[in-house]
Structure formats: C-alpha cells, structure tokens
C-alpha cells in the first residue's frame, strides 16, 4: 500500500511531484494563496470578512453565465462581485434593514441564482468543482487566466499598498489630504472580486472566504507591524496550501477542505501560542525559564 512509501519524509514530498497534475496544483494553489493572503491583511484590518463572504458567493452566477457565453469566467465573476456590493449599498440606503442582514440576504440570493442557473444551462460546468474547488484538475486556459489575474492583483496591491493601509486605518485623513478614497474603496472591492475568482479554483466558492480572512487573522495575532503582517499572511497561506494538497493526496481527502483546515490549524496555533497575543503567550513561558 501507499502507506509504506511515506515512511521517509523524502518520498512523502517527492512522490507526488512525479505527477504532472500535482506539480500544477501545487504551483497554482501557492500562487492563489499568495494573492488571497496578501489581500487578507487588508480585509482583516478593514473588517470586511462578511463583505468577503458576500462577494465570494455572489460571483457564482457570473461564473456560470460567463461559461455559458464562452467569456472569461473572471469577467462574469467580476461584474457580479462588484454588482452585489453595489446592490448591498443601495438596499441599505433605501430601506431600514440593517447592514449585516442586507449582506446575508443579497449574497444568498446571488448564490441561489448561480445554483439554479447551473441546473438550467446545459454545459460542461461541473457544479462540484465550482462549489468545492478542483486544484487537481485545472485546465491550461484556466492556468493562464489565473496567472494573469493573480499578477494583476499583486501589482495593484503593491502599487497602492500604503494608500490602502491608510484607507483601512484612517479614511478621513486620506480624504483630508486629497487622496481619492472612492477609488481606493473600489480598488479594494475589485481586488476582492478577482481574488475570489482565482481562489474558488483552489478551494471552491463555499470556502474561498477562508482564504481571504484566515491568513490575515493569523498574521494579526503574530505581529504589530503592517509589512510583517502581509508577509506572514502570505507565507501562512502558501504553507497551508502545500500542506493541504499533500495531505489530500496521501489520504485521499477533499483538497479544498484540506487547504482550509490547514489554515484553520495554523490560526489555532497562533491563537494559543502567539508571543504577545496568544492565550499562553509563548514569550512569557520562555522568559520563565531564564
């Protein structure tokens, strides 16, 4: 059985690399994780977890329609992602319903529309792969699209890194010194929609929100510097992806779920043992031994 082949750590790591689909999955998932991890810092600090949840679910009908029309799925996802946020803003302003209710209401509506569309539009869309991700079965055109979107998001976030930090921290000051807050708001939303699109390939639409919030939350527990937070967030996201894919390969588990579980475990570890903000405050434990 396979069990004996990972008696050595070496073969545990190298064996899967002999498969073409595994190499591709590891590479693509790391890339996607890096993008989502980068964005995650901003979403965590801005308090946009629920917004991330909403956008990532709302892209569903966009993906389906785009597939059906033969358009790039990212285009459809983008339109519906940003559209859902606009709709949330509109309903909130024009009714007395509270914001979290509106968010829940809008994204489930979009999500349901996506599911209904999948069942009606006869095409080769695999509902399972949209819902749960299929990093092991990414097609070549999807690879190209993912790389393009990922680079785009990383470049945008890098250019406006400091402005976005200011926007999350103190939008009023940003506005006062003539920085275009409106632009930054929609830039962050755009990146969120795009990241949700690439993220759904790796872990699926249901769990993509984890990619967008868990790495940031983990990093937030580990540092007091924004730049470090971004680096930690990206690294923890990439490591989780690698662990998730390897574990799912050897134990025949759902890949998307494994990746997210790995992230959750890393978060729990930080939650318990983070030097300053963990429950057990490792720093103090070590200091006790000196």
């Amino acid at each position: 059985m396979e069990l004996c082949s990972f008696l050595t750590l070496d073969s545990f790591i190298t064996d899967p690399l002999t498969h073409d689909f595994m190499r591709k999955a590891l590479l693509m998932s790391s890339l996607v994780a890096a993008v989502c991890g980068f964005l995650s810092s901003y979403l965590t600090l801005k308090g946009w977890a629920l917004m991330g949840d909403a956008v990532s679910h709302s892209v569903m009908p966009g993906v389906v329609v785009a597939y059906a029309l033969g358009l790039p799925f990212s285009l459809g996802a983008f339109i519906f992602g940003v559209g859902s946020v606009a709709l949330i803003g509109f309903i909130k302003q024009k009714s007395r319903v509270k914001e979290d209710t509106v968010i829940g209401l809008v994204f489930t509506g979009f999500f349901a529309l996506g599911i209904v569309l999948v069942s009606k539009i006869k095409s080769n869309i695999d509902l399972h792969s949209i819902l749960f991700g299929s990093p092991l079965g990414i097609s070549l055109s999807d690879v190209k699209q993912t790389i393009f979107i990922s680079l785009l998001v990383v470049i945008l976030l890098s250019i406006f890194r400091k402005d976005l930090m200011l926007y999350c921290f103190d939008p009023r000051h940003a506005k006062t010194v003539g920085i275009n807050v409106f632009f930054l708001h929609y830039l962050l939303l755009t990146c969120l929609s795009l990241a949700a699109v690439v993220g759904l390939q790796s872990v699926g639409i249901i769990l993509v929100v984890a990619m967008l919030i868990t790495p940031g939350a983990t990093a937030y527990l580990l540092t007091d510097k924004f730049d470090n937070m971004t680096v930690i967030s990206v690294l923890s996201a990439i490591i989780s992806s690698l662990i998730g894919i390897y574990v799912s390969f050897w134990f025949d588990l759902e890949t998307g779920g494994s990746i997210v579980l790995a992230q959750t475990f890393i978060f729990l570890f930080a939650f318990l043992f983070a030097p300053r903000y963990g429950i057990f405050k490792l720093k103090k434990l070590f200091a006790g031994y000196k």
């Binding site: 600090l45 930090m165 921290f169 009023r172 006062t176 003539g178 007091d224 510097k225």
Partner: peptide, 23 residues
C-alpha cells in the same frame, strides 16, 4: 484645500482603531 493639504484633522481617540498594526 485637500490637494494643498491645507487642513489637518486630529481624530478623537475613540475614532481610530488603536489595535491597528502601525508604529
């Protein structure tokens, strides 16, 4: 005035996120 940075706003302590990772 915004373009020239003519006005500076000093927020209330409660108006900012004191846990933001920034020096």
């Amino acid at each position: 005035a915004q373009k020239d940075q003519t006005i500076a706003y000093v927020p209330q302590n409660e108006g900012i996120d004191s846990q933001f990772p920034i020096s």
